[in-house]
Design a protein around this nucleic acid. Structure first.
Lengths: 358, 358
DNA sequence: AACTCGCTCGACAACGTTGTCAGATTGCTA
DNA sequence: TAGCAATCTGACAACGTTGTCGAGCGAGTT
């Protein structure tokens, strides 16, 4: 004999199970979903059939039919799943989702607005129950349909534009200001700024914080010591090198993004200035404490952001309602060494060095 | 007037579109799928209706009905989406999948066999078209049903057990041996081993490579200089510290995993031995080149592994068939400094230092 | 003029599942 | 013993979509 039974072509379905167990599909369904109200004998028969056939329910078909139509999957539209910030966020979402057996679709936008739309389209088309978005475009009006249809949407790290939804943001302005105050308190007045693409809202906010903090101390930054649109490590390294080898080089650097910080570190290292020029970076990174000197940063907390975003999502999915709200997750200055290299203006102006409250 | 029209409760469906456009659902379907064979006038009417209602096709329902039943989603069962190896792998999968508009479900196993099964269950239940698995369990027989049903499965980094599927592996044995040969060539005979959980196949292979490479040089490692089951940074640091402060401390360390390497670096640093004790780590990590001294590693190439895994998946999905095959992606020794710290036995035995071919 | 051909279009069924409902069986009460 | 409620079970429809098939129509052929 080649086949013991009718050998259903593809995967076994509930119908195959029911047939083998000698019950109706509905009763088979009752057993596999644990709905109850089935006699022990039939339960056993169905379970036997399930085991024998290796039946796996088709959750896709089930969610098509079920009352709420939930797919128990949420989508994460991230900057790049392989960068530390995004992947920490991703992991935090997963941790919260796991408690509810919800899966995560993740995709990388790479700062490409078209890609952002394509991803969101793909995810909504696949009936994701909710959307977590780190946007790259300058306007997300196109999401209105989804939001109106009742899909919970949370923006993370960058504010929504043209649409009113929950957001979990970092206080970039305050964080940047904190970094600059810290440097000034350690005797620096010539603090350079190296930042990400100005098209990114957070980059603009950090620059704003930098400018205002300096101006609080009556300092006007030199135009040569400001570099924008550094999105790759190599660009940042070149920009830092240019500043540091120019005339009247800065005595401290504020690097407003991860890769920019690392590029600047390379420049400092290769010029042998890493023990002499102070540096505070925005966003923490692994091994920052093992470098020489250890790198002082304004840390964001992507895990906390992810957990908060997920909890907002699930509260909405549970039916809770409230007006769209923006939440701010605080930053934390972690002094490790590079930011405490003294500058030429000790005990700046106002007496004791100004330290932000822990 | 409160509502301009019948205001369909949830998302608009093809039926709503057809109704508004005055055509049958089938014709509406023809338009949105681009099937063709529809007059220009009706195409326009349908497109208008689509735009007016903000209609989005339900890909889930579509794949239920369509001939091949594909969901255009593949699942990645990873160690931890937030660790650099996993996330680089994830990203590589995404890059290949993107070309075909295929999305990725990702989940973290955290070395928990139960979680591995739960994730795979969840993904198959959601009709993922294929599975990429970095296994944590010691046996994956339970996947037989999926494989028989024709779902392409590729194992990455760790070999499948109890089941015969494609695999993309690192040559851990050779990579570890290469690291040890490198250290011996630089004058070390007392090379310690610090490795991950012995329950992980790759950890065992790396240990094997270490032992055999030493034995090639007629060296028998001291039992005190071998530490297994170091899965967290803190454990690794403690173990390294114990070895380095014991009597007859090793002159070189081979750290067989990422976090173990970092833990060992912390121990070296805190004991002030980082310029005196050589170290080669298995698996590269960001910023290894910026540490003092820069860290020599045997690098894996998670991107290449991911791309290869994805290409195997898609070739199978395209209908190509071949017997399950194991592919080995080569490692590469990257000499940066920490591995070239000289040991007490210069020009070891066989004349010129043995360097593996680049 | 009768016929065929090609094209457009819609009715219907089906994908795998679950909600609804009514029928069948059982056990209990009066 | 009749009556009734409680329990179990299956037929059927439906979720949103697409494959199948045949009807309708105008144009071209003999």
């Amino acid at each position: 004999m080649t086949e013991s039974a009718a050998a259903p072509r593809g995967r076994p379905t509930l119908r195959d199970v029911a047939l083998l167990a000698g019950v109706s599909t509905k009763t088979a369904s009752r057993v596999v979903t644990g709905e109850g109200g089935v006699t022990a004998a039939k339960v056993a028969a169905v379970q036997d059939a399930v085991a024998k056939l290796g039946y796996r329910p088709n959750f896709t078909a089930s969610s098509l039919r079920r009352a709420n139509g939930r797919t128990a999957a949420i989508a994460a539209v991230l900057e790049d799943v392989s960068n530390p910030f995004s992947s920490a966020l991703h992991r935090a979402l997963e941790d919260v989702a796991r408690e509810r057996d919800v899966m995560i679709f993740a995709g990388s936008v790479d700062e490409d607005p078209a890609r952002e739309r394509a991803l969101i389209h793909a995810f909504t088309t696949r009936q994701a129950d909710a959307l977590v978005v780190v946007p790259a475009s300058d306007n997300q009006r196109y999401l209105a349909g989804e939001v109106n249809a009742g899909t919970p949407v949370v923006f993370v790290d960058r504010p929504p534009v043209g649409i009113d939804v929950d957001a979990v943001l970092v206080d970039n302005h305050a964080g940047a200001a904190q970094a600059v105050h810290h440097l000034v308190a350690h005797g620096h007045r010539d603090v350079a700024f190296l930042g990400d693409l100005l098209s990114i809202a957070t980059a603009r906010q950090r620059f704003q914080g930098y400018k205002e903090a300096l101006s609080d101390h009556g300092i006007r930054p030199s135009a040569e010591h400001i570099a924008h649109d550094l999105h790759a490590e190599a660009n940042a390294e070149a920009a830092a090198r240019r500043m540091l080898t120019g005339e009247a080089p800065p005595t401290a650097l504020f690097t407003a993004q991860n890769l920019v910080t690392i590029g600047a570190l390379r420049a400092l290292r290769s010029l042998g200035l890493h023990e002499r020029v102070a540096l505070v970076g925005f966003d923490d990174f692994p091994l920052a404490d093992l470098l020489q000197p250890p790198v002082t940063v304004v840390a964001q907390d992507p895990s906390a952001m992810g957990r908060l975003a997920a909890s907002l999502i699930f509260r909405r999915l549970d039916g809770e309602t409230w007006p769209p709200t923006t939440h701010h997750v605080p930053t934390r200055l972690i002094a490790r060494g590079s930011g405490e290299i003294p500058g030429p203006h000790p005990a700046a102006e106002g007496g004791s060095p100004v330290e932000p409250p822990s």
